[in-house]
Amino acid sequence: MASGIKQQERQNTIAGWGFMVPALVIFAIFVVLPIIFSVVVSFTNWNGISPPSQADFVGLENYKRVLIQSGITQTDFYTALKNTTYFALFVVPAQTILALVMAVVINQQRLRFKQFFRVSYYFPSITSSIAISLLFMLMYQKDGVINNFLSTITFGLWPPVPWLNDPRGLFHIILGGLGITVQTVPSFMTTVTIGGVTLWNWISGPAVSLLAIIIMNTWTTIGTMMLIFVAALQDVPLQVYEAAAIDGATAWQAFRKITLPLLRPTTFFVVTLGLIGTFQVFDQVYVMSSGGPAKTTLTIAYLVYREGFRNTAMGIGAAIAIVLFFIIFAVTMAQRRITEGKPEE
């Protein structure tokens, strides 16, 4: 008897593995191998043109040039890190808050045309980002729709700006309005550098060109995030709200004390997705600005591409990609600590 069960188990095991093999093979070829390959490449001086087997092993040299050794590679990396960080700092809160607000609005019981709103909010997310980028390039032109709109609602006070070709930093513009410019700032701001970037440039804020991409990116990603929030909202039992209403809670109190706490795991998920997405932003930059003007839209993911395919330094590109992985990993971990810090139920 016992041996019969054993045989049965063995057959089950074989069948189980048999069914998993296709997925495993595909996973190994398209996920595991490329990861191993890029780790290996990051330790070589591969130029990306000759066969990879001809590249020399250079140890940690690439990482040194990217992170520590002062030079153009390091400056570009920290410039990209700065841009990407500003990008994430602006996009993630904006998309999370707006998505939540929209989800709550859409989830109302007595909303008319619910389907229409759902579809129209979600539409940008299912449209090709390349198509959207091209459309926004037209809208962002100096005599494009956006400048015309802003000019109209401000009664002509808004000076048209060439959005995608304006390298001035947002904080620099604000500081400039207060009379603080690169000429009047204390000299240590322009002489002290961290990672090859001066303190003054670190506090530039996102450039106008990057802001243009931030606005577009927020608009396109909101739909997906909203959908996740809507799904979570529908899981919140109505009785809880009814009980709160009986206790005399206002709508705002119900939102703060019921909706938000119950959505905490969803918020964590949305913020995590947002962080990962923003740190990897590539396609919009590739289509709209190629990292310019004046490297203000150079993001880490775009830098990986640029080093690998335009500067024939695939080793450097791979090293930056690995560093990017650790940055995203660290940021996600930190974020998890913050949002899940308080132990709830």
């Binding site: 153009i72 570009d76 640029r306 500067n311």
Partner: peptide, 22 residues
């Protein structure tokens, strides 16, 4: 010469800054 793209990126970025008065 090979590898000069980094210099061109710097120059183009610099020209953009000069054009913008930065």
């Amino acid at each position: 010469v090979s590898g000069f793209q980094a210099v061109l990126d710097t120059m183009n970025s610099g020209l953009q800054q000069v054009f913008a008065g930065l």
